[in-house]
């Protein structure tokens, strides 16, 4: 039983497909997301940028999970290798919840104020 991979990911070592490359890629994606959050004035795009950042974090978790994949020495932490992936799963769940609530708030706000521009969202300042 199991899930047959189409290619052997384990066999070849060198090249770009390594831990460092994954982490750098995650950092770049995270930064792009952060840029979007900071620079964009459309709440929708801001929310999408947030998703980008969360995905970057997931990528980091998955990378380290693979690094710890062979932590099977004792019965107690025999499953430690999968914990990173499980954490990523939780992040996806939270991201889904966040997107749902955030968009619901956005809709409500738009219904009342006819705008999704962050420059107009200054109620707390006044």
């Amino acid at each position: 039983m199991g899930f047959d991979l189409p290619f052997n990911v384990i066999a070849d070592g060198g090249g770009l497909m390594n831990l460092k490359g994954c982490l750098i890629l995650a950092g770049v994606i995270f930064s792009i997301g952060a840029w979007g959050v900071v620079a964009r004035r459309n709440v929708l795009t801001v929310l999408i940028s947030l998703e980008l950042m969360l995905n970057a974090v997931n990528l980091v978790f998955a990378s380290f999970a693979r690094m710890h994949a062979n932590m099977t020495q004792s019965a107690n932490n025999a499953t430690a290798g999968e914990n990173g992936q499980i954490f990523a799963l939780f992040i996806i769940a939270v991201a889904a919840a966040e997107a749902a609530v955030g968009l619901a708030i956005l809709i409500t706000y738009f219904r009342n104020k006819e705008t999704v521009d962050t420059r107009d969202m200054k109620e707390l300042k006044q």
Binding site: V37, V38, A39, M121, K122
Partner: peptide, 14 residues
């Protein structure tokens, strides 16, 4: 500093 603009605060965090 308190612009009331969400982006400013996000920028501060960043």
């Amino acid at each position: 500093i308190q612009t009331g603009l969400m982006n400013t605060y996000a920028f501060a965090i960043l």
